[in-house]
Design a protein around this nucleic acid. Sequence first.
RNA 1: UCCCUGGUAGCUCAGCUGGUUAGAGCACCUGACUGUUAAUCAGGGGGUCGUUGGUUCAAGUCCAACCCGGGGAGCCA
Length: 423
Amino acid sequence: MRDRASVRCTGTIVESQGSGQRVEMQVSEVEVLGDSDANAYPIQPKKHSLEFLRENAHLRFRTNTYSAIFRIRHQVSFGIHEYFDANGYNYFHSPIITASDAEGAGEMFRVSTLDPKGPPLNDDGTVNWKEDFFGAESRLTVSGQLQAELAATALGKAYTFGPTFRAENSNTTRHLAEFWMIEPEAAFMDLHGDMDLAEGLCKHLIARVLKNSMDDLQFLDARLKEEEAQKPQAQRSDMGLIDRLKFVLENPFERITYTDAIDILLRSKPHQKKQFQFPVEWGVDLQSEHERHLVEKHFKKPVIVTGYPAQIKAFYMRTNAPGDFGYSEKGKTVAAMDVLFPGIGEIIGGSQREERLDVLEARMKEMHVPAEELWWYLDTRRFGTVPHAGFGLGLERFVLFVTGMGNIRDVIPFPRTPKSAEF
RNA sequence: UCCCUGGUAGCUCAGCUGGUUAGAGCACCUGACUGUUAAUCAGGGGGUCGUUGGUUCAAGUCCAACCCGGGGAGCCA
């Protein structure tokens, strides 16, 4: 029998004489169920780098770090259903394959059964997609939101929770090509309700993990402290993992408008000392450095930013009028909201949707979104339209926060990223 | 995709300005010892130095291209 072998032992549990353990087993019989060649087995009984374990993703669950992470991931996933079910939301399955490329959330993966070496061609030399499996160009979904809106106008409250795909060449610690997204959508809900829902969900999930996964959290907390101890003093965070979760749970998220956020940034030290790399002025999108300043330096807690300029946001977001939350004299804004978390940045992006057909169509034209392809979506506005709102929460980003891990590839079992789809 | 950084034994890494047979700790194998739990002691095996090409009498070391990892940025969840 060698290290890492799987065994079945028969014996007696007795009080242990050793330190650091209460009981031990005095074995009378050992059966080797599966031996293991310790020479060939990649995971050694020692501390491995996360990079190395990532290359052995098929075995990394066997380490205490990853088993803790994936137990917590389960708690979060289960808690999502628990929260929405308790609040009257219907779990709605949006499609994974879609024939529309106008969802507007990013580059898409093509789905095809055509032979790439010699696809059927039209007279003008372009590929004849009518010959393809679905009779049209089809792709993997980047968002279930449009379908969730259909569900909301029927069921009242609905949420999707499924895999989502982005073919963006993003190489960061918080992007995946395949990730799991939660997208609630509710009829008769405005942006305030949307924010309440988002904050309520985050807090429910944190509370659930604190309740059900304390052992794993303590392990990850200790792991994090060890890691922090090797960093220079200035980069260490003042709170441990569990303290951080409790803090977020017990304090209201800060809610500010984009216009106020810009004002805060303009008055901030880093701006006055010209330490920001990107310009701060009304109309530009908030960069990571700006979000970090607001969340980690200025407010020191999760922040919800609302009322972004229309030109930097998606076509389906509701245009603000005077008196609306987030309206600004400085330019056209929409009823959008981003929830920003410390260390991660945007964890939720949502909005009240544009329910007025004429306004929506004008906006689509302005942003070159092909209305013909989305005729079915526009039907929600044609036939008994209703004010409604929703958001998208990235499951892995949330798990990142709850586990205190630094790389999104470590909180999904088999990460799919540019140049990497093994296992 | 851009910027920075790295790729040397199974793992973590050392290898100064190019110079003979490339090192350490851990892991592994053999033996000894042991109420051990990061055991200990002695001995042993193990590397085409990311790939390809170039410079040179000589390349792990210098140059170029490419591949892959890590950090940051953009796109966003």
